[in-house]
Design a binder for these strands. Sequence first.
DNA 1: TTGTATGCAAAGATTTTGCAGCATC
DNA 2: GATGCTGCAAAATCTTTGCATACAA
Lengths: 165, 165
Amino acid sequence: MSDVNERLKQFARYLDDQGLRYTSQRRVIAEAFYGSGKHLSLNEVLELARDKQGSIGFATVYRTMKLLAESGLAIEHRFDEDGVRYEPAGHDHHDHLICNRCGRIIEFEDEVVERRQEQVAKELGFRVASHRHEIYGECLRDPCPYESQSSQGRVTGVADTAARN
Amino acid sequence: MSDVNERLKQFARYLDDQGLRYTSQRRVIAEAFYGSGKHLSLNEVLELARDKQGSIGFATVYRTMKLLAESGLAIEHRFDEDGVRYEPAGHDHHDHLICNRCGRIIEFEDEVVERRQEQVAKELGFRVASHRHEIYGECLRDPCPYESQSSQGRVTGVADTAARN
DNA sequence: TTGTATGCAAAGATTTTGCAGCATC
DNA sequence: GATGCTGCAAAATCTTTGCATACAA
């Protein structure tokens, strides 16, 4: 929670720097986003935000998430199918393991891979700015193996977390 | 070219196996796709195909590329922005370096990374089925550094290749 | 013939934008 | 007041699908 407040403060500061306003909607949206799980779609954020303030519109969520992305406080992901998904940022970088069955998203980070890719890029005359590394497969722990053939339709919204941090 | 013909033959065989027809459109589309560069969008494939047979429609390209993807002869990519992009498949797996300036796409493959990710996934109780690894940055060689501020609008279609193989 | 394939246009799904009214400075 | 924000609805994109017609087996 302290973490959430920290984010809100950073967001407020960013808005102020840009001469923009920290409105109640923006606060509610950011709160919903940071307070909940991770990797949310716009509609998921909208739903959460509406739990707190029923009148919020999709466009506002859309624009607010863009602001968060611009400010660097959120990262826009385009995983395989589906549309855009946002992830709280600011922590250190990490990559993803995505379960093809239950849709769970596990985060990971690996120094070996990180260093090695820098090396590879360098060898090919390329300067690295960012990267994405996603591994698809099946998670073998927790309540997935292999997804109680029913509940979710496929890669859904709710995203878990694990590993690192 | 021998390679293109090889692909066409494989495609024809796949269609036959499925009880589908190897029509002139499908041949032209596959030819255009395999004969040209890599990582093409549907519209790019359409344009190339129309150079050979002006009457081809978008829907036919759309459906043909789906067939190629299903057959495993092409891979559907969803790089950052933009929409879907297809890449000729059948070779061994590889990943991508994408230049943020000129849009060039460089392919690479690295045993160290490949093995390491298997390891990481295993440690997290995850079985790997596939993965994507994309590095974004700037290419420092050839005619890019840094893109003669004009020509291309941004990440475009034409894709180069390099490294490995 | 008989079942596919094609091309066009319409339908869907998402993502963006325009605007009138509201809120904040 | 002036400028920025919101919510709604319309617009713009992209991706899929329905269908009548054209083909291939």
